[in-house]
Design a protein around this nucleic acid. Sequence first.
RNA 1: GGUCCGGUAGUUCAGUUUGGUUAGAAUACAUGCCUGUCACGCAUGGGGUCGCGAGUUCGAGCCUCGUCCGGACCGCCA
Length: 582
Amino acid sequence: MLRTHTCGELRISDVQKVVTICGWVQRIRNLGGMTFIDIRDRYGVTQVVIDEKSSNELHSIVEQLGREFVVQVRGEVVERTSKNPKNPTGEVELRTSNITILNQSELPPFTIEDDTDGGDELRMRYRYLDLRRNPVKNALMLRHTMAQEVRRYLCNKGFLEVETPFLIKSTPEGARDFVVPSRLHHGQFYALPQSPQTFKQLLMVAGFDRYFQLVRCFRDEDLRADRQPEFTQIDCEMSFVERDDILDVFEGMARHLFHTVKGVEFDAPFRRMTYHEAMSLYGTDKPDLRFGMSFKDIGAQLKGKGFSVVDNAEYVGGICARGCASYTRKQLDELTDFVKRPQVGASGLVYIRYNDDGTLKSSVDKFYSADDLMLVAKVFEAKPGDLMLILAGKRNKTLPALSELRLEMGNRLGLRPKNQFAPLWVVDFPLLEWDEELQRFFAMHHPFTSPHPDDIPLFQSNPAAIRANAYDMVINGVEVGGGSIRISNRELQQTMFNTLGFSDDEAEKQFGFLLNAFRYGAPPHGGIAFGFDRLCSLFGGSDSIRDYIAFPKNNAGRDVMIDSPSSISQQQLDELNIIIKE
RNA sequence: GGUCCGGUAGUUCAGUUUGGUUAGAAUACAUGCCUGUCACGCAUGGGGUCGCGAGUUCGAGCCUCGUCCGGACCGCCA
């Protein structure tokens, strides 16, 4: 070893030891008579001191040093005369007689500091330098810890980690596949898995009754701050279980992670909310329960008073923002502009202000008497000082818009602190979604999700009303995981495919391997998959998952460091029998 | 496929509203001074294809069009 200690471990108890450390030059402070050099590695920063009495040879080496030079420093650990309480190693320093330059460094394009001067693009291009910075390094360390704890918990519960193939076949439904041309089979292609869904079901048929995998998944769709084309799932499946068995095991996993990684405990069981309840109370299937402000339907109180926007609306609902009656005209206009943005899509905003003196003032006083408004205030259980915000319109447009408004008010009122966590299960999702454009049903979760047993007759009469035996874990408004009890019956699976518009032939061609497997004794099974990158960013208190991935891609799906994707040679194209269309 | 924002010193930005002398600041870097700094301090200095191309104009960092790159979002993401 070129070192005896890391840059993060020397303490006052090490005084008088002669040690050797290796690391990068963080900063040089030359005070004339004496020079301080901060040496950094993964573990911390240690100060090296060189004084006037040192040899000329040492001084000439120090003169050559620059930022990010890699050095080996040998010296005696001494107690500092002026200590730095901000640094864990700040009570000691290394009095050196010997510095070896292991490698020089060009001047890096941005400073390697917690608050760097580098912009996003530059830091992505020089990701290996960005990874030297504490915030990014700590994010990856958090990810490591979480991966370890996931494995420890699931291993203790008897889960077996099994790897599944990456070169598989393209299937319809769901996201766009990444595709890999086959050289050995002209005109044929592998696809990269969007998830190991069918393989983990086959593992259940194989009798591996508790499976998990920390696995890369690939989806060729446009990116967002919380979406990468390749991302990691904690993928799990269990046999001989019912829904609540799975919820119990994985609520346990979440608790284990919160306990070991964040020191956070939850006394009560995670709240369980039906999809229907989540939509009507919060306008979304992933409500942020760090704060209340749930929706109240006030159609009954407001309709029939001559205000056409409300009278013609399918849905009239609102939220009550406590203590916001003092909002100025400007603030109310901002909120109106907010809900009218195309991304939110409401046509306008009605407010009712409950003044401190007990009177009510609204933007629609023309249509409503004080008594009318008081009835609304009663529904909201509003008190003097509160502000009621109301939207009206089509139900499936207004609920999501009101959800956006609720989150915006939560942000404005500071009700969404990063270090508070509100987990819940959302259950009883619809099995199917009707696509107006294509005039067909799509599986809301995926085509292997089993319907609620009571709802199976509805396949004939009203498929849209079928509830799925599916569930999501939601934390702070983020869908961190989701799963379902699967169909393990060949006939029911075929009914499902038929409802989705597959002919028997097509189903056989696409999913024959699974249907065949179901001929040979498939156990009842179900599972769940967690978005590991999202889970990490949630634990780390960040909205972007990119910091939790060592080498992420930018928002156009490019890796700007290695410059991919890129062209390939004509020879490679020829081997693959591929012609690029101009 | 679409909408919006940005591209000026190594870096982060100002300057664009109203076209006009030598394009600024901070930081980084270099040199000098400084024996307890830890965002060291002080002084001095170097550093620019104003993303690229075309156009308008006597004159373009600034206006117009195109294009490339980056960021956020909508669609999309079972």
